[in-house]
Computed example of a mutant assay.
Amino acid sequence: MDSKGPPLYAQAGSSLDISQSLEDNSLVDGPLISADALHSAIRREFQTVPTSCHASLLSVLHVIYVVLSICVGVLCVLKFGQEEVCTKILHGVQGGSVIVYAKVFLWALVLLFTGCMKHHHSRARSRGYLQFYREMEGLKHLPLIVHSIGNVVLLVVLAAGLHPPVHTYLLLSVLGLEVLVAVPCLIYYAVKVMRFNRERAAPDVNQEELSHSYSVTNSPTETGFRGASSLEEVVEKQADLIEYLKQHNTSLSKRLLNITAQH
């Protein structure tokens, strides 16, 4: 019994080695994916964020609205000798009502612009531009907040029941103050987005890999948090990176399956 045992185990082991080598050979002999094809399929071209044009257009519309509101308020509401012209242009509608209706329409445009910003910034975040997304997080909500506060102040002025001259002056003052705050915010946002589009930088993960390799080869690395670092920011950034890498790995898996199916 003992003399027959080792040959049986040896035969079994040799058969397993043969089958494993055959499987390895079949994998090696299979169609291989060229590096050029894989790189061309995985490489993503930089996609710009088109909201800078929208912000510039909204700024122009806001300035035009305020200028026209001042003209309507001075000529039609305060009635500086242009009652007939205002009646023909406004078709009998009161000048104050026209200003309020136009303000509601402008607020709706700002709300639509904010939704468009959120959509394009979320797409930029999904492409790996996490730092840009975090920098613009507070700025993209600022125009809507300014316009919403202006609407609240206008409602207070309308509900106060003041005399027409005082009411008109307050109304125009609120609109002027609003444009002085909202338009610079939109211009600053447009400049930031245009700079991001002009730089055409790689995603944050690739930039960190390059900086890490440069620091390893040229300077000693440091361990731990620096004085200006915040633990909450580091944890939040790591969570964003993990979420992006999960989405990126899913996309790469789908692309690899498509390439292997084509070959």
Rank of each mutant, 00 (worst) to 15 (best):
A41M: 11
C53E: 15
T51V: 04
G115D: 07
I145W: 00
S97L: 11
P50K: 02
V28T: 01
G150I: 09
F196L: 06
G81L: 03
A182V: 14
A41T: 13
C86T: 06
I187H: 10
V104K: 09
S19C: 09
T221S: 11
H120V: 02
E135A: 13
I99H: 01
E135G: 12
L130D: 04
L57I: 11
V235I: 02
R255V: 12
Y133M: 09
S230C: 09
E243S: 15
T51L: 00
D2W: 04
N25H: 10
L38C: 04
R195F: 03
S3G: 05
L241C: 03
N258T: 12
G227W: 14
T250K: 11
L155W: 14
P203Q: 10
Y129R: 11
T221I: 13
L257S: 15
V63P: 15
V72Y: 05
H120F: 06
T221P: 08
I259E: 12
L155G: 14
V72G: 03
L16H: 03
E209Y: 04
L109V: 07
S122L: 13
A182Y: 06
L158V: 12
S69A: 14
V72P: 02
F46L: 01
L175H: 07
M1C: 06
L180T: 08
Q11T: 10
N151H: 11
S69H: 06
G95I: 08
K88V: 02
H167L: 09
L139G: 04
S26H: 09
C76H: 02
L256W: 01
A124V: 08
L210F: 01
H163I: 15
H121M: 15
V85E: 02
A160Y: 08
V166E: 15
Q82I: 07
H167C: 07
V85R: 08
H147Q: 12
R127Y: 09
M194T: 13
L241R: 01
R226M: 07
S34I: 00
A102N: 06
V157H: 05
Q207E: 00
V146P: 01
P7K: 00
V28R: 12
Q247A: 11
I149N: 07
V216D: 02
